[in-house]
């Protein structure tokens, strides 16, 4: 039992609490950036900044969110050092999930977009 539970495949350098802390800091900063993007994008910091940020605010939020997602998955969920099979168990369903969401948005907005023309 003892010996077994550590034989989790790729046994190279387990992350240390120091690394975990750095990741936590980055996550915190990224979250702050998300809220900042929201505030700027919606005019809290003046109209000039809003004009620049507003068109890309959704993109910005998606990128920031994906970065946070990746950090948690790689470091906290140990996908970075665990065997690749586990990454596959996560990443393919994730891609399918994202595709389903995107397809539903496209299908449901079709008549609205076409009708507007």
């Amino acid at each position: 039992m003892d010996a077994h539970s550590h034989a989790q495949g790729g046994d190279h350098a387990h992350p240390t609490p120091g690394l975990y802390f750095k990741v936590a800091l980055v996550l915190f900063v990224l979250t702050a950036l998300e809220v900042l993007a929201y505030e700027v994008g919606h005019g809290r910091m003046g109209a000039d900044l809003q004009r620049i940020v507003e068109p890309v605010v959704v993109m910005l939020l998606l990128v920031l969110s994906a970065a946070k997602f990746a950090l948690v998955a790689m470091f906290y969920m140990h996908l970075k050092q665990d065997p690749k099979v586990l990454t596959n168990l996560f990443i393919w369903p994730l891609l399918l999930a994202a595709t389903v969401i995107a397809a539903m948005i496209v299908i449901f907005s079709y008549w609205r977009v076409v009708g507007a023309k």
Binding site: P93, L94, A97, V100, M104, I105
Partner: peptide, 16 residues
């Protein structure tokens, strides 16, 4: 992996 699709269904419904 399976639960990704559970939340995908909920999120797509919210968005559409």
């Amino acid at each position: 992996g399976s639960e990704c699709l559970l939340f995908a269904s909920l999120i797509s419904t919210y968005l559409v």
